[in-house]
Design a protein around this nucleic acid. Structure first.
Length: 789
RNA sequence: GGGCUCGUAGUUCAGUGGUAGAACGUCGCUUUGACGUGGCGAAGGUCAGCGGUUCAAUCCCGCUCGGGCCCACCA
């Protein structure tokens, strides 16, 4: 049946979606299938903020991969997860109810979080669904392939199982240490949760005295409020200006504390005055310095971000206020000799953007320093797409300097599953396989195994959110839940994710999975860059510059967007600029594909392959087979860009502009200039090429290929095997460029002579190599007599 | 300071050791049979700069400049 409508309409998508919703066996993960499993550990999006086109683009590419792998005969495990734990949810709840988490009872705060979660879950899923992304299931559940939520009892129990196992292995320990503390979130955070911002601050030159002399020293600092914690003054061993100070004692301004003066290579001659005051916990370098020099740190900032009793007259002030007051006081006493504005790379909390302070607290740590070399090996043993993305991970592993602090003093996250005997302090571990809330549940035993004590205290702290996100491949592959399934299918085939979370999600996942399974977690890792706005700037939620996928769906529908994602570039190498104009360009290719099908559908499809094919038919078949091979190779490396560009070029140029023009008269055969067999050869070839083109494009543009395939060939394109490259009978007397050049030359010749393209020309000179397609050229260009030379 | 990456047409990007490519945009021409959301054509580039290897460099190597990202102990 010929196709009637003249173009692809976005309204078609609705029908197809509802058809897929009713009947999608090919998307479902078949637990009992004998096909090899290809597992994709997709990033669970945070539910409280709607996704933008950056997300939908990357999930579309993941869907390209899933669809391609299905056509290649894999049983594709492609579940959607929803991330619902942790600070973003808590912060949203605090904002919505205008209450800090520690101002209300814990149960009540959890209720607030649940309210926020209830209101926010559906929208992102709807966007994914409308983009034609074929997650295995749209149902929230616990079976392989079903949507999982990281805050479900099922997921959290697995997170706790990993804690219990690592604890038993002796890899988790509790220690009192100076670590990163976010005063806004009021919790310890890991290095990976810190980002750096350039902040304006003052570089203050302040006066220290040298004990027993009249000499004064000028020392520059950005943190004058920490003078009280100064433990030493240093200068560079090669700095001639200060050699005489070696071994003397400095007296700090205002606090009048005596500290040693020493030479130390960490002091740089040309920084400030060349003298540095070493404070405990001004930044990470200070912490290391105090450790090295065996100095006792003085912590002057408490857990609310305010100065404590060590800060003397600054006590009770916030760090910023204390700094202002200190500068004021120094100025009054004539101890501030100079002040200039400078920008300082300041560590801030990536969530709340508060400046990090360094505070001593008791926290649980997971050992990671001992495994750096092993982790590097795993990084080298995992395939990265693009390969150069691996260095993001290697750089991070290289820079790790402390163990991973995993406990957090917050509420909405997976609880640390521990109880303590109040009598003998024995740590009580629960059994695996169940979700535990020690802060409100009884311990799993009634008597302490060590002292027979009967009174226990449940742990109040929770786990870092990355501690649970980092088990996603274990979760989707049923670790500790279905042993044979896990054994058969681990490591996970593919982790697709953004470059910005290499040091968190990727690193922590590889790390934890290694500790638990002694193996790499992934065969392949695909790292993507970002969709940026028209000016090349990052989408920013706070500035509201993210493009809403709904706007794209309203304007274009999903299909032109998917086409654009594939055509625009390689997202594993570069950022894309989001441009509606260029998405519109994707739509044109759909129209071209549609009309190509419409043309072919004018001719009844031959039942059998003709015995003999015309040379030009063999030629186009060899072209499409080459294309199939290229696409298969590219898709296999998660390159959907180059093959799609190639298919588009083939469709538009080689196939439409050249092949179709050359066989039109033979396919119509209105003047009966061709035999029936010759005519059928053309028509059969048209259908062959079309079927392969549709199947090549099916992973990228599933809607249009589905509809066209169904109308023309019957059946479901997404259920078909990916096309294979076949040998053809093309002898190859001429190359494709030569043929294209020949046709273009003739068209140009006619144009220059002012002749219509369908006008006859009495004769034309053509190279001998085209002899085998003489009849084709004659009928296409209406040449009376071809002179071969 | 270190690392990665990019610098090609007005714009966004491909690309190759041998005459420089596409899309979009611009301008001109083209109106009936798959497609005007089409077709044909034009203008537009010292392939960032400098040096080296080579018969030949936009491509390989080195340096410089300029963007972007990541890391780092700039008091």
């Amino acid at each position: 049946m010929p196709i009637e409508s003249k173009r692809w309409e976005k309204e078609f998508e609705q029908e197809i979606l509802s058809e897929w919703k009713k009947n999608t066996p090919e998307n479902t993960f078949q637990e009992k299938s004998k096909k090899p499993v290809f597992s994709i550990d997709t990033p669970p999006p945070y539910v409280n903020t709607p996704v933008h086109v950056g997300h939908t683009s990357t999930y579309c590419i993941m869907d390209f991969i899933a669809r391609y792998k299905r056509m290649k005969g894999f049983n594709v495990l492609f579940p959607l997860g929803l991330d619902r734990n942790g600070l973003p949810i808590e912060m949203a709840a605090e904002k919505k109810f205008n209450k800090r988490f520690n101002e209300v009872p814990r149960e009540q705060f959890l209720e607030m979080c649940h309210k926020v979660l209830e209101e926010s879950s559906a929208e992102s899923m709807d966007s994914f669904y409308k983009h034609g992304i074929t997650f295995n299931s749209w149902k929230i559940g616990t079976k392989p392939g079903e949507i999982y939520q990281t805050d479900s009892a099922h997921y959290r129990s697995l997170t706790q199982d990993t804690f219990i196992e690592l604890y038993k292995k002796g890899l988790i320990y509790e220690d009192v240490r100076i670590n990163n503390y976010c005063p806004g979130c009021q919790t310890t955070i890991a290095d990976a949760e810190i980002i750096y911002e350039d902040k304006n601050t003052f570089f203050n030159d302040i006066t220290f005295k040298v004990k027993g002399t009249k000499e004064e020293m000028i020392i520059g600092t950005t943190r004058p409020e920490l003078v009280t914690t100064c433990g030493m003054v240093i200068f560079n061993p090669k700095d001639d200006r200060y050699q005489h100070l070696e071994g003397k004692t400095a007296v700090t301004p205002i606090f009048e504390k005596e500290v040693p003066i020493q030479s130390h290579p960490m002091a740089e001659i040309d920084k400030g005055t060349g003298l540095a005051m070493m404070c405990s916990a001004g930044d990470l370098s200070d912490i290391r310095f105090f450790r090295e020099m065996n100095l006792k740190p003085i912590i002057a900032i408490d857990t609310t971000g305010k100065m404590n009793e060590h800060a003397g007259f600054l006590k009770g002030l916030s760090v910023r206020k204390a700094r202002e007051k200190m500068i004021e006081t120094l100025q009054e006493k004539g101890l501030l000799v100079n002040q200039k504005q400078t920008t300082h790379r300041t560590p801030v909390c990536e969530r709340s953007k508060d400046e990090i302070e360094f505070i001593e607290m008791k926290e649980y740590y997971l050992k990671q320093l001992d495994f750096k070399e092993k982790m590097k090996k795993i990084a080298l043993d995992t395939k990265f797409f693009a390969d150069q993305s691996r260095s993001l991970l290697l750089d991070w592993i290289e820079s790790i300097s402390i163990d991973w602090p995993i406990s957090r003093r917050r509420y909405y996250a997976t609880e640390v599953p521990l109880w303590y005997c109040t009598k003998c302090k024995e740590v009580i571990l629960p059994l695996k396989g169940k979700y535990h809330q020690p802060w409100r549940e009884k311990p799993p035993i009634s008597k302490c195994p060590k002292c027979n004590g009967t009174d226990f205290k449940g742990e109040k702290r929770v786990l870092d959110t990355w501690f649970d996100s980092s088990i996603s491949p274990l979760y989707i592959l049923q670790w500790s839940r279905d042993h044979s399934f896990f054994k058969k299918n681990y490591p996970c085939s593919l982790r697709p994710q953004g470059k910005e979370i290499v040091r968190t999600w990727l690193y922590y996942t590889l790390f934890k999975c290694y500790l638990l399974t002694n193996q790499k977690a992934f065969e392949n890792v695909w790292i993507h860059h970002h969709i940026v706005d028209e000016h090349g700037k990052k989408f920013s939620k706070s500035k509201g510059t993210g493009v809403d996928p709904k706007e794209v769906l309203d304007k274009f529908g999903a299909e032109p967007f998917r086409m654009w994602v594939a055509l625009e570039g390689n997202l594993d190498r570069t950022d894309f600029r989001c441009s509606f104009e260029r998405i519109e360009g994707g739509k044109k290719t759909l129209t071209k594909l549609w009309n190509t099908c419409r043309f072919i559908s004018l001719f009844p499809k031959p039942k059998n392959k003709p015995k003999k094919l015309d040379e030009i038919d063999e030629w186009i078949l060899s072209e499409i087979n080459g294309l199939v091979e290229k696409a298969d190779n590219g898709f296999g490396k998660y390159d959907f860009h180059n093959p799609t560009v190639d298919v588009k070029h083939f469709l538009w140029e080689t196939f439409s502009s050249h092949y179709l023009e050359m066989i039109k008269s033979r396919a119509y055969n209105k003047e009966k200039a061709f035999s029936k067999e010759e005519q059928e050869s053309a028509i059969w070839t048209l259908y062959q090429c079309l079927e392969k083109m549709l199947l090549l494009l099916a992973p990228v543009v599933p809607f249009i290929t589905h509809k066209l395939y169904q109308e023309i060939f019957g059946g479901n394109a997404h259920d078909r095997a990916f096309p294979k490259s076949e040998k053809t009978g093309f002898k190859g007397d001429f190359s494709t460029e030569e043929l294209v050049g020949l046709n273009s030359g003739i068209w140009q010749f006619k144009k220059e002579k002012g002749l219509a393209l369908n006008k006859e020309i009495p004769s034309y000179k053509i190279p001998k190599k085209f002899k085998s397609i003489e009849k084709t050229l004659q009928s296409c260009h209406k040449i009376g007599k071809i002179e071969f030379s």
